[in-house]
Amino acid sequence: MCLGVPGEIQEIDGHEAVADFWGVERRVRLDIVGDAVEEGDYILNHVGYAIRKIPESEVEQTMELFETMLDADPEDMLTDDVMEELEANSGAPAAGAQEEGDDDDLLEELGIDV
């Protein structure tokens, strides 16, 4: 019930909008979102009310925050290379389970010795 769920505004009708939450659509009220909201904007939904518009710039700011935190420590393992790799991966997320190669690969992935 405390849950805040990010969604993308699809359609606005007065105080009400339809937002997409990872492919699932639901009505949200805009009474207290506090900012002007347009189609395509991201909002944070709480119990059916948008309580916050999430500007894309601030999403990036979060990312930078993480980087700052890690960069701040030169001993950290996370190099720019790693960051790039991570970003590259994010385009094809978690599809590993669908793409196994042959038997040995699978057993190896699962850590099974035959």
């Binding site: 993308e8 997409d20 939450f21 990872w22 492919g23 978690a94 599809a95 389970a97």
Partner: peptide, 11 residues
Amino acid sequence: TRAGPTGSIPG
């Protein structure tokens, strides 16, 4: 896939 729910902003 679990791409959506593993944390990306949707859409």
